[in-house]
C-alpha cells in the first residue's frame, strides 16, 4: 500500500484523482474533528469538503517532509479559523441543546441514562472551554492523536502539549463540577 505521503506527492505532481484515496482514508476522521469543533453536522461536512478542496488547490505547499495527516490538520484548522471569523461563537454553538441527539441511544437503564446525562453535561462544559482548549482536547481524546503528533500540528513542544491537555481537562472538570452544583 502506498503511504499517505507518497500519494499526496503524486497529487502534487498533477495526478489529482489520487486525492480520492486520501479522502477515502481520512474524511471520517476529519469530519469527527470538525464536528467536535462546531457541533454542526452539515457545517462539519462542508468543512471537510472545503479542507480537501484547499489541499488540492494548495497542493504545492505540501513538501513531504512532515506527515500528510499533520498537514491535513493544519489546512483544516485554517478552514476552521475562517469559519470562526464568519460566525460568532454564540451562533456557532446554538444547537448544543440538541446534543442529546448525538449521544448513544438505546435502552434507558439507570447506568446508561447516567452516562448519557453525564456526557451531555460534559459536552456543555466543553462548549465553555476556549477554542484552543477544546481543540487540543478534541485532538487528544477524540482524534486519538499522540502528544507528539499534536505537537507537530500545533507547532509546539511535546511538553507544552502535555501541560495544555492536562489544563484543558482540569478546566473541563471544574466547569462541569460548577454546572452540576
Amino acid at each position: 500500500m502506498l503511504t499517505d505521503n507518497a500519494i499526496m506527492l503524486k497529487v502534487k505532481e498533477g495526478d489529482l484523482d489520487r486525492m480520492g484515496l486520501l479522502f477515502e482514508r481520512y474524511h471520517r476522521q476529519l469530519y469527527g474533528f470538525l464536528f467536535h469543533m462546531t457541533y454542526k453536522k452539515e457545517l462539519a461536512e462542508d468543512m471537510v469538503q472545503h479542507t480537501f478542496y484547499k489541499m488540492l488547490k494548495y497542493r504545492n505547499s505540501f513538501t513531504g517532509t512532515g506527515e500528510f495527516v499533520h498537514w491535513m490538520y493544519t489546512v483544516a484548522r485554517n478552514v476552521l479559523k475562517d469559519e470562526y471569523k464568519k460566525m460568532k461563537r454564540a451562533q456557532l454553538h446554538d444547537d448544543v441543546d440538541n446534543i442529546s441527539d448525538i449521544l448513544p441511544g438505546g435502552v434507558h437503564t439507570g447506568d446508561m441514562y447516567d452516562k448519557k446525562e453525564a456526557a451531555r453535561g460534559l459536552h456543555k462544559a466543553m462548549e465553555k472551554l476556549s477554542d484552543e482548549q477544546r481543540e487540543i482536547l478534541t485532538m487528544s481524546r477524540f482524534q486519538e492523536l499522540k502528544h507528539q503528533e499534536i505537537a507537530e500540528i500545533l507547532n509546539m513542544t511535546e511538553g507544552a502539549v502535555k501541560v495544555r491537555v492536562h489544563r484543558a481537562m482540569q478546566e473541563l472538570k471544574s466547569i462541569y463540577t460548577k454546572m452540576e452544583s
Binding site: L16, D17, M19, G20, F23, E24, H27, R28, Y31, G32, F35, H36, K41, A44, E45, V48, Q49, F52, Y53, L56, K57, D101, I102, L103, P104, K115, K116, A118, A119, L122, H123, M126, R141, F142, M169, L172, K173, Y176
Partner: peptide
C-alpha cells in the same frame, strides 16, 4: 471518569453522499 464519559459521546454518522460530493468537487476542480 471525565475522560471515560467523554468517550461515551458518539458523533452523528457523516452523510453517505460525502464521497459523491467529493468526486463532484474534484471533477469541478479539475
Amino acid at each position: 471518569q471525565v475522560w471515560d464519559v467523554l468517550g461515551e459521546v458518539t458523533i452523528p454518522e457523516p452523510s453517505a453522499d460525502m464521497p459523491m460530493r467529493f468526486n463532484a468537487m474534484l471533477a469541478n476542480y479539475k
